[in-house]
Design a protein around this nucleic acid. Sequence first.
DNA 1: CGCTACTCCTGCGCGC
DNA 2: TGCGCGCAGGAGTAGC
Length: 316
Amino acid sequence: MPELPEVEVVRRGLASWVAGRTVEDAQVLDPRSVRRHALGPEDFRGQLEGATVLDAVRRGKYLWLPLAGPADPPDAAPHTALLAHLGMSGQLLVEDPGQPLEKHLKVRLSLSEAPGMPGELRFVDQRIFGGLAVVPLVPTHDGGAGGRSESPRPLIPAEAAHIGRDPLDPLFDPAAFHASLRSRRTGIKRALLDQRLVSGIGNIYADEALWGARLHYARPTDTLRRSETARLVEAVRAVMERALAAGGTSFDSLYVNVNGASGYFSRSLDAYGRSGRPCRRCAAEGDVGVVVREPFMGRSSYRCTRCQPVPRNARW
DNA sequence: CGCTACTCCTGCGCGC
DNA sequence: TGCGCGCAGGAGTAGC
Protein backbone atom coordinates (compact mmCIF):
# COMPACT_ATOMS: atom_id res chain seq x y z
CA MET A 1 0.00 0.00 0.00
CA PRO A 2 2.11 2.84 -1.23
CA GLU A 3 1.93 6.02 0.80
CA LEU A 4 4.37 8.90 0.57
CA PRO A 5 7.57 7.09 1.60
CA GLU A 6 7.03 4.31 -0.89
CA VAL A 7 6.25 6.73 -3.70
CA GLU A 8 9.31 8.78 -2.83
CA VAL A 9 11.49 5.67 -3.00
CA VAL A 10 10.08 4.97 -6.45
CA ARG A 11 10.67 8.58 -7.50
CA ARG A 12 14.32 8.40 -6.48
CA GLY A 13 14.71 5.18 -8.38
CA LEU A 14 13.20 6.66 -11.51
CA ALA A 15 15.40 9.74 -11.23
CA SER A 16 18.48 7.49 -11.12
CA TRP A 17 17.54 4.88 -13.67
CA VAL A 18 15.20 6.50 -16.16
CA ALA A 19 15.93 10.24 -16.32
CA GLY A 20 17.90 11.13 -19.43
CA ARG A 21 16.71 8.12 -21.39
CA THR A 22 14.41 8.02 -24.40
CA VAL A 23 11.31 5.85 -24.73
CA GLU A 24 11.81 3.77 -27.85
CA ASP A 25 8.59 1.82 -27.67
CA ALA A 26 5.54 1.63 -25.45
CA GLN A 27 3.30 -1.37 -25.11
CA VAL A 28 -0.05 -1.31 -23.28
CA LEU A 29 -1.00 -4.82 -22.21
CA ASP A 30 -4.13 -3.78 -20.32
CA PRO A 31 -6.01 -0.65 -21.42
CA ARG A 32 -7.51 -0.26 -17.95
CA SER A 33 -4.12 0.86 -16.68
CA VAL A 34 -4.17 3.86 -19.04
CA ARG A 35 -7.87 4.69 -18.71
CA ARG A 36 -6.99 8.15 -17.40
CA HIS A 37 -5.24 8.85 -20.69
CA ALA A 38 -8.27 10.42 -22.36
CA LEU A 39 -7.29 9.71 -25.98
CA GLY A 40 -6.78 5.98 -25.49
CA PRO A 41 -3.92 3.45 -25.52
CA GLU A 42 -2.84 4.13 -29.11
CA ASP A 43 -2.41 7.84 -28.45
CA PHE A 44 -0.63 7.03 -25.18
CA ARG A 45 1.86 4.94 -27.08
CA GLY A 46 2.29 7.56 -29.80
CA GLN A 47 2.97 10.34 -27.34
CA LEU A 48 5.62 8.33 -25.54
CA GLU A 49 7.57 7.04 -28.52
CA GLY A 50 10.65 9.16 -29.04
CA ALA A 51 10.09 11.20 -25.87
CA THR A 52 13.00 11.72 -23.50
CA VAL A 53 12.48 11.55 -19.75
CA LEU A 54 13.90 14.68 -18.12
CA ASP A 55 13.28 14.11 -14.42
CA ALA A 56 11.11 12.41 -11.79
CA VAL A 57 8.83 14.65 -9.73
CA ARG A 58 6.37 13.95 -6.94
CA ARG A 59 3.50 15.76 -5.28
CA GLY A 60 1.88 13.73 -2.56
CA LYS A 61 1.32 10.28 -4.02
CA TYR A 62 1.29 11.52 -7.60
CA LEU A 63 4.47 10.96 -9.54
CA TRP A 64 5.39 12.23 -12.99
CA LEU A 65 8.20 12.15 -15.51
CA PRO A 66 8.47 15.43 -17.45
CA LEU A 67 9.07 14.65 -21.12
CA ALA A 68 10.92 16.30 -24.00
CA GLY A 69 9.50 15.57 -27.43
CA PRO A 70 11.87 14.58 -30.27
CA ALA A 71 11.43 18.00 -31.93
CA ASP A 72 11.73 20.10 -28.78
CA PRO A 73 14.67 22.52 -28.47
CA PRO A 74 17.19 21.31 -25.87
CA ASP A 75 16.45 23.98 -23.27
CA ALA A 76 12.68 24.19 -23.69
CA ALA A 77 10.56 23.77 -20.57
CA PRO A 78 8.70 20.45 -20.70
CA HIS A 79 5.03 20.71 -21.52
CA THR A 80 3.99 17.10 -21.07
CA ALA A 81 4.71 14.37 -18.56
CA LEU A 82 4.10 10.70 -17.98
CA LEU A 83 1.87 10.78 -14.91
CA ALA A 84 1.73 7.78 -12.59
CA HIS A 85 -0.35 6.93 -9.59
CA LEU A 86 0.38 3.61 -7.91
CA GLY A 87 -3.05 3.26 -6.32
CA MET A 88 -3.14 0.27 -4.02
CA SER A 89 -0.80 -2.12 -5.71
CA GLY A 90 1.11 -0.38 -8.50
CA GLN A 91 4.80 -0.98 -9.04
CA LEU A 92 7.29 0.62 -11.40
CA LEU A 93 10.12 -1.74 -12.14
CA VAL A 94 13.31 -1.12 -14.08
CA GLU A 95 14.30 -4.47 -15.52
CA ASP A 96 16.02 -6.30 -18.28
CA PRO A 97 13.56 -7.00 -21.14
CA GLY A 98 14.43 -10.69 -20.90
CA GLN A 99 13.09 -10.98 -17.37
CA PRO A 100 9.94 -13.14 -17.07
CA LEU A 101 6.74 -11.14 -17.48
CA GLU A 102 5.03 -10.40 -14.19
CA LYS A 103 1.54 -11.81 -13.73
CA HIS A 104 0.00 -8.35 -13.50
CA LEU A 105 2.24 -6.59 -16.01
CA LYS A 106 0.21 -3.78 -17.59
CA VAL A 107 2.57 -1.47 -19.49
CA ARG A 108 6.10 -1.89 -20.88
CA LEU A 109 8.34 0.96 -22.00
CA SER A 110 11.59 0.14 -23.78
CA LEU A 111 14.29 2.64 -22.98
CA SER A 112 17.31 3.79 -24.94
CA GLU A 113 20.50 2.02 -24.01
CA ALA A 114 22.46 3.28 -21.05
CA PRO A 115 25.61 1.68 -19.65
CA GLY A 116 24.89 -0.70 -16.80
CA MET A 117 21.18 0.01 -16.74
CA PRO A 118 18.31 -2.35 -17.55
CA GLY A 119 16.45 -1.59 -20.75
CA GLU A 120 12.84 -1.57 -19.69
CA LEU A 121 10.44 0.28 -17.40
CA ARG A 122 7.47 -1.86 -16.40
CA PHE A 123 4.22 -0.90 -14.73
CA VAL A 124 2.76 -3.80 -12.77
CA ASP A 125 -0.56 -3.43 -10.97
CA GLN A 126 -2.68 -6.17 -9.47
CA ARG A 127 -5.77 -4.20 -8.48
CA ILE A 128 -5.67 -1.55 -11.21
CA PHE A 129 -6.51 1.34 -8.89
CA GLY A 130 -3.40 3.03 -10.20
CA GLY A 131 -2.49 3.94 -13.74
CA LEU A 132 -0.43 5.90 -16.24
CA ALA A 133 -1.27 8.79 -18.57
CA VAL A 134 0.56 11.32 -20.70
CA VAL A 135 -0.73 14.71 -19.59
CA PRO A 136 0.03 18.42 -20.08
CA LEU A 137 2.06 20.32 -17.51
CA VAL A 138 0.48 23.59 -16.46
CA PRO A 139 1.56 26.44 -14.18
CA THR A 140 -0.13 26.14 -10.81
CA HIS A 141 -1.27 28.67 -8.29
CA ASP A 142 0.12 26.20 -5.80
CA GLY A 143 -3.08 25.95 -3.86
CA GLY A 144 -3.29 23.71 -0.85
CA ALA A 145 -2.86 24.53 2.77
CA GLY A 146 0.81 23.78 2.96
CA GLY A 147 1.85 25.95 0.04
CA ARG A 148 3.18 29.46 -0.15
CA SER A 149 3.45 31.71 -3.12
CA GLU A 150 6.52 30.91 -5.11
CA SER A 151 8.17 32.25 -8.16
CA PRO A 152 8.44 30.78 -10.64
CA ARG A 153 5.26 28.78 -10.47
CA PRO A 154 5.97 25.10 -10.72
CA LEU A 155 4.70 23.19 -13.74
CA ILE A 156 2.54 20.32 -12.65
CA PRO A 157 -0.19 18.10 -14.10
CA ALA A 158 -3.71 19.46 -13.58
CA GLU A 159 -4.54 16.10 -12.01
CA ALA A 160 -2.16 16.88 -9.14
CA ALA A 161 -2.83 20.61 -8.84
CA HIS A 162 -5.18 20.22 -5.89
CA ILE A 163 -2.75 18.10 -3.88
CA GLY A 164 -1.22 19.87 -0.89
CA ARG A 165 2.37 19.74 0.23
CA ASP A 166 3.48 16.74 2.25
CA PRO A 167 4.90 17.06 5.79
CA LEU A 168 8.47 16.41 4.60
CA ASP A 169 8.28 19.15 1.95
CA PRO A 170 10.27 22.27 2.95
CA LEU A 171 7.33 24.34 1.69
CA PHE A 172 4.87 22.60 4.01
CA ASP A 173 3.56 25.28 6.38
CA PRO A 174 2.60 23.91 9.83
CA ALA A 175 0.97 27.19 10.89
CA ALA A 176 -1.25 27.22 7.81
CA PHE A 177 -2.03 23.55 8.40
CA HIS A 178 -3.10 24.29 11.95
CA ALA A 179 -5.26 27.19 10.78
CA SER A 180 -7.02 25.06 8.19
CA LEU A 181 -7.64 22.31 10.75
CA ARG A 182 -9.17 24.85 13.14
CA SER A 183 -11.41 26.26 10.43
CA ARG A 184 -12.90 22.89 9.56
CA ARG A 185 -15.57 20.98 11.35
CA THR A 186 -14.50 17.42 10.88
CA GLY A 187 -12.54 14.67 12.60
CA ILE A 188 -8.76 14.63 12.56
CA LYS A 189 -8.34 11.40 10.62
CA ARG A 190 -10.65 12.59 7.85
CA ALA A 191 -8.49 15.71 7.64
CA LEU A 192 -5.27 13.68 7.52
CA LEU A 193 -6.61 11.63 4.64
CA ASP A 194 -7.73 14.70 2.68
CA GLN A 195 -4.86 15.13 0.23
CA ARG A 196 -5.71 18.80 -0.34
CA LEU A 197 -4.88 19.70 3.24
CA VAL A 198 -1.75 17.65 3.67
CA SER A 199 -0.61 15.00 1.22
CA GLY A 200 1.01 11.60 1.29
CA ILE A 201 -0.87 10.13 4.23
CA GLY A 202 -2.94 6.98 3.80
CA ASN A 203 -4.86 4.81 6.22
CA ILE A 204 -1.83 3.09 7.70
CA TYR A 205 0.32 6.12 8.41
CA ALA A 206 -2.70 8.09 9.63
CA ASP A 207 -3.25 5.49 12.34
CA GLU A 208 0.45 5.36 13.16
CA ALA A 209 0.75 9.14 13.43
CA LEU A 210 -2.40 9.44 15.57
CA TRP A 211 -1.02 6.76 17.87
CA GLY A 212 2.28 8.63 18.04
CA ALA A 213 0.50 11.87 18.92
CA ARG A 214 -1.91 10.16 21.34
CA LEU A 215 -4.92 11.48 19.46
CA HIS A 216 -8.20 9.72 18.74
CA TYR A 217 -9.16 9.63 15.06
CA ALA A 218 -12.51 11.33 15.75
CA ARG A 219 -11.01 14.30 17.58
CA PRO A 220 -12.74 17.47 16.28
CA THR A 221 -10.18 19.48 14.31
CA ASP A 222 -11.58 22.81 15.51
CA THR A 223 -10.60 22.00 19.10
CA LEU A 224 -6.97 21.16 18.35
CA ARG A 225 -4.42 23.19 20.26
CA ARG A 226 -1.33 24.44 18.50
CA SER A 227 0.79 22.06 20.57
CA GLU A 228 -1.35 19.11 19.53
CA THR A 229 -1.06 19.95 15.84
CA ALA A 230 2.69 20.30 16.30
CA ARG A 231 2.82 16.88 17.99
CA LEU A 232 0.79 15.38 15.18
CA VAL A 233 2.94 16.88 12.43
CA GLU A 234 6.04 15.60 14.19
CA ALA A 235 4.49 12.14 14.51
CA VAL A 236 3.64 12.07 10.79
CA ARG A 237 7.16 13.13 9.89
CA ALA A 238 8.69 10.56 12.21
CA VAL A 239 6.71 7.65 10.80
CA MET A 240 7.39 8.76 7.23
CA GLU A 241 11.09 9.21 7.80
CA ARG A 242 11.38 5.79 9.39
CA ALA A 243 9.60 4.21 6.44
CA LEU A 244 11.72 6.17 4.00
CA ALA A 245 14.89 4.97 5.68
CA ALA A 246 13.65 1.39 5.57
CA GLY A 247 12.55 1.60 1.94
CA GLY A 248 15.50 3.58 0.73
CA THR A 249 17.90 0.74 1.30
CA SER A 250 15.97 -1.92 -0.60
CA PHE A 251 16.44 -0.11 -3.81
CA ASP A 252 20.05 -0.92 -4.50
CA SER A 253 19.01 -3.92 -6.56
CA LEU A 254 18.47 -2.25 -9.95
CA TYR A 255 14.93 -2.35 -8.89
CA VAL A 256 12.42 0.41 -8.38
CA ASN A 257 10.04 -1.51 -6.21
CA VAL A 258 7.13 -0.51 -4.08
CA ASN A 259 7.27 -3.78 -2.23
CA GLY A 260 10.82 -3.02 -1.28
CA ALA A 261 9.49 -0.81 1.48
CA SER A 262 7.00 -3.36 2.73
CA GLY A 263 9.36 -4.87 5.25
CA TYR A 264 8.66 -1.80 7.28
CA PHE A 265 5.01 -2.67 7.67
CA SER A 266 5.41 -5.98 9.41
CA ARG A 267 8.23 -4.87 11.67
CA SER A 268 7.60 -1.54 13.19
CA LEU A 269 3.94 -0.60 13.11
CA ASP A 270 2.62 0.38 16.53
CA ALA A 271 -1.12 0.54 15.89
CA TYR A 272 -2.17 -0.57 12.41
CA GLY A 273 -3.06 -4.26 12.24
CA ARG A 274 -2.33 -4.88 15.92
CA SER A 275 -5.88 -5.34 17.20
CA GLY A 276 -6.17 -7.34 20.40
CA ARG A 277 -2.50 -6.83 21.23
CA PRO A 278 -1.15 -4.68 24.04
CA CYS A 279 -0.24 -1.09 23.26
CA ARG A 280 3.56 -0.89 23.26
CA ARG A 281 3.70 2.53 24.84
CA CYS A 282 1.27 1.62 27.61
CA ALA A 283 3.14 -1.60 28.27
CA ALA A 284 6.41 0.31 28.54
CA GLU A 285 4.80 2.59 31.09
CA GLY A 286 3.44 -0.32 33.09
CA ASP A 287 -0.14 0.26 31.99
CA VAL A 288 -2.59 -1.96 30.21
CA GLY A 289 -3.79 -0.46 26.98
CA VAL A 290 -5.11 -2.60 24.14
CA VAL A 291 -5.19 -1.83 20.45
CA VAL A 292 -8.66 -2.16 18.94
CA ARG A 293 -9.87 -2.20 15.37
CA GLU A 294 -12.92 -0.10 14.64
CA PRO A 295 -14.84 0.49 11.42
CA PHE A 296 -14.36 4.04 10.19
CA MET A 297 -15.09 5.63 6.82
CA GLY A 298 -15.79 2.23 5.36
CA ARG A 299 -12.27 1.18 6.38
CA SER A 300 -10.62 0.19 9.63
CA SER A 301 -9.00 2.32 12.26
CA TYR A 302 -6.66 1.05 14.93
CA ARG A 303 -6.12 2.84 18.24
CA CYS A 304 -5.19 2.23 21.84
CA THR A 305 -8.21 2.40 24.11
CA ARG A 306 -6.17 3.89 26.92
CA CYS A 307 -3.86 6.49 25.38
CA GLN A 308 -6.19 7.42 22.53
CA PRO A 309 -9.53 7.71 24.34
CA VAL A 310 -12.73 8.88 22.67
CA PRO A 311 -12.80 12.69 22.83
CA ARG A 312 -15.67 14.97 23.78
CA ASN A 313 -17.78 16.00 20.78
CA ALA A 314 -16.20 13.30 18.66
CA ARG A 315 -16.69 13.77 14.92
CA TRP A 316 -16.85 10.41 13.23
C1' DC B 1 -20.24 24.08 -1.05
C1' DG B 2 -19.34 20.05 2.08
C1' DC B 3 -19.85 15.74 3.32
C1' DT B 4 -21.17 10.64 2.38
C1' DA B 5 -21.59 6.68 -0.47
C1' DC B 6 -20.31 4.40 -4.23
C1' DT B 7 -17.07 2.70 -7.69
C1' DC B 8 -13.08 0.96 -9.69
C1' DC B 9 -10.27 -4.12 -8.93
C1' DT B 10 -8.08 -8.72 -7.40
C1' DG B 11 -6.52 -11.99 -4.03
C1' DC B 12 -6.76 -13.84 0.22
C1' DG B 13 -8.68 -15.85 4.31
C1' DC B 14 -12.44 -17.42 6.66
C1' DG B 15 -16.79 -19.92 7.62
C1' DC B 16 -19.99 -23.24 6.27
C1' DT C 1 -12.74 -29.70 -0.33
C1' DG C 2 -14.85 -26.04 -2.52
C1' DC C 3 -17.47 -22.15 -2.81
C1' DG C 4 -19.03 -17.62 -1.65
C1' DC C 5 -18.50 -13.73 0.86
C1' DG C 6 -16.17 -9.99 3.35
C1' DC C 7 -12.27 -7.33 3.56
C1' DA C 8 -8.25 -4.58 2.01
C1' DG C 9 -8.01 0.60 0.29
C1' DG C 10 -6.59 5.76 -2.96
C1' DA C 11 -9.20 8.87 -4.90
C1' DG C 12 -12.48 10.55 -8.31
C1' DT C 13 -17.18 11.36 -8.75
C1' DA C 14 -22.16 11.34 -8.19
C1' DG C 15 -25.62 12.71 -5.27
C1' DC C 16 -27.89 14.63 -1.36
